[in-house]
Amino acid sequence: MLLAFLLIVALAAVVQRNLLAVVLLFAVYSLLSAALFTSLKAVDVAMTEAAVGVGVSTVLMLATLSLTTHRANRLPRRSVLPLIVVLATGAALVYGTLDMPAFGDPGAPIHGHVAGDYLRRSIAETGIPNVVTSVLASYRGFDTLGETCVVFTAGLGVLLLLGTRRGSRGEATQP
């Protein structure tokens, strides 16, 4: 049901020419994804998706639209080659999923590696009931440090590109 809604919203976003509507459709898409993640019991991801996908990124997209324009340019012509490439890639990806283990299969390779170890040892070793947190912050602390650095670098990059400097309160210096 949620997947059907996702498909409808995605198709509507592709067809729609008004960029304002497209941004709002993407917000709806993110909200539906968050609901999907919740139904898959991935609440941490759902919270991130709801806050970032629906909230922050929508606001940033709207800010971009208010700086540029609401209308998409008409495509000069429709060619068949991109469609063929997309369809072939999609078919290859679907073909790849045929060999994947069934959803929730306990014998899947991803459950046989370290996941079971983390689940068994987390409470005894860290005393943290939420295994997601103990894996992210403790077992995989280096990775999360790297992610935090990535977030910081991304923010730094945006600040450098857009060239906002303080001093001119609320007004950017034109590059």
């Binding site: 800010a63 540029t68 947190t133 999360t144 935090t148 923010g155 600040l159 007004e171």
Partner: peptide, 30 residues
């Protein structure tokens, strides 16, 4: 874990806000 999560929270919140400031305080370049 508490301290590390605090660091992540502070960094993420301020980066998001910094990006918002950078976008919102620009003049239109239509």
């Amino acid at each position: 874990v508490f301290l590390v999560e605090l660091g992540v929270g502070v960094a993420v919140a301020s980066v998001m806000l910094a990006i918002f400031y950078a976008f919102a305080s620009r003049k239109p370049i239509a």
